[in-house]
Write a protein that binds this DNA or RNA. Structure first.
Length: 405
DNA sequence: TTTTGCGGGTCAG
DNA sequence: CTGACCCGCAAAA
């Protein structure tokens, strides 16, 4: 596992580090401690990847993942194991007007999940169904977390064979918004429609608002307690948006990326309910923008995940331009430790059309899903494969909008 | 209410 | 023994 010390010594190049970093296994008695660089938190770890996060990383500390992962007892208090719950889909396999599919985040709590499944599809009212994950030899993908020294080791086993569900934050924000909406108790009929739609399961429309939501300064700067802030800011946001702008940047959607993204991954933007189109008269959800579809931020997965520790030649991380961290964020950069919190761009989405996303696809791993195990034939699972790259882009963008660090 | 982590316990391989 | 999973408990959000 550990390579010769000298090797390591000599080469500081990322290549060897990479090896070094990937040579361990979560079950090893000893894990590398001479880690030179930790990874930026990965929201959508997939395939058999490993990451070493700083023990300072809030998200790592919380063992977060945007996949719906539930705790699994592995009878090993040193290694936290979690398994994927999959994604909740509409059994009618309906699509929204703009062709998107419904991919809800399964509730982690068993009880809540059951309740959730009793609800109806926010889009067609049909029954919802839990599409379970079977990306690991027919079993759910598992994630392992282990705190060791100043690092937090993460290892994923299996490639998700299903669409990405809403992220936790999306779900939370959505809830907040809903709540807010309810509070506003709309008198407007139009809104009402929306309310109804949403309230069916509370899933939908809001999503688009999220990005904006998240781009809110507060939400940004307070990683630690974002949820709390979110709920608060969500309202403000809504108000802001509705009162002022609501740029309907539909435009972005066009970029190839967005398009290409398997519908499921676009779920982020999902929800643009027909009606919700843009009546932003009230406390409604903005609807308008599509954060991510945006020109594509790139923050590519794997490679870019490295975060150079101060020790090394810092600041030389290719992905973090010297520009402002936050800015990068928006563009897909991963969040650098909040060194400067100022210079928050506040753009709901990236501007330049980087469009580099496609490349990521190069990371193809999955897609050749291991000869599908006993899959319930459920619709889509299929695309789970590629598209990932794009997804990354998309979600990342989105993701980057908030402080996951 | 839900999330998250823990750990007892079962079952199958 | 290992891995998956069910169940309840408790703390925190």
């Amino acid at each position: 596992m550990l390579k010769g010390a000298d090797d390591v010594m000599e080469q500081e190049d990322s290549a060897s580090q990479q090896e070094e970093i990937t040579s361990w296994d979560i079950n090893d008695i000893k894990l590398p401690q001479d880690v030179r660089q930790t990874d930026w938190f990965q929201e959508w770890p997939d395939s058999y990847v490993k990451h070493i996060y700083s023990s300072e990383d809030k998200n790592a500390q919380r063992h977060h993942s945007s996949w719906a992962m539930r705790n699994t007892n592995n009878h090993n208090s040193r290694i936290l194991k979690k398994s994927c719950l999959g994604v909740v889909v509409c059994s009618n396999d309906c699509s929204t007007l703009d062709g998107r599919k419904i991919y809800l985040r399964p509730a982690i709590c068993d009880k809540a999940r059951q309740k959730q499944q009793r609800k109806c599809c926010p889009n067609c009212n049909g029954p919802l169904r839990l599409l379970s994950c079977r990306g690991h030899g027919g079993y759910p993908v598992t994630n392992f977390w282990r705190h060791e020294g100043q690092f937090i080791f993460f290892q994923s086993k299996g490639a998700h064979d299903h669409p990405r569900p809403e992220t936790k934050l999306e779900a939370e924000a959505r809830r907040s918004i809903q709540k807010a909406q309810t509070d506003f108790s709309p008198s407007s009929p139009k809104l009402k429609t929306i309310w109804e739609i949403k309230s069916l399961t509370g899933e939908m429309p809001t999503q688009e608002a999220l990005p904006l939501l998240l781009s809110k300064p507060d939400a940004y700067l307070q990683p630690a307690n974002f949820s709390g802030h979110l709920s608060k800011s969500s309202r403000e946001l809504m108000l802001n948006i509705c009162s002022g702008q609501a740029p309907h940047l539909r435009a972005d959607e066009e970029d190839g990326n967005a398009r290409e993204v398997p519908t499921w991954s676009r779920s982020l933007a999902i929800g643009r309910t027909p009606s919700s189109g843009r009546l932003c008269n009230g406390p409604t959800i903005p609807v308008a923008n599509r954060p991510c579809a945006a020109p594509s931020p790139r923050r590519f997965a794997q490679p870019s995940t490295q975060h150079v520790l101060p020790v090394t030649k810092a600041g030389h991380n290719p992905f973090r331009s010297n520009a402002g961290p936050w800015r990068d964020e928006l563009h897909g950069g991963t969040t650098p430790e909040a060194h400067s919190s100022s210079r928050l761009p506040l753009l709901p989405y990236p501007m330049p059309q980087g469009g580099s996303c496609p490349m990521v696809t190069g990371t193809h791993h999955h897609q050749q899903q291991l000869s599908e195990p006993p899959r319930g034939g459920e619709g889509d699972g299929g695309e789970g494969g590629h598209g990932m790259g794009l997804n990354y882009c998309n979600d990342n963008t989105f993701f980057n909008l908030y402080p996951l660090r």
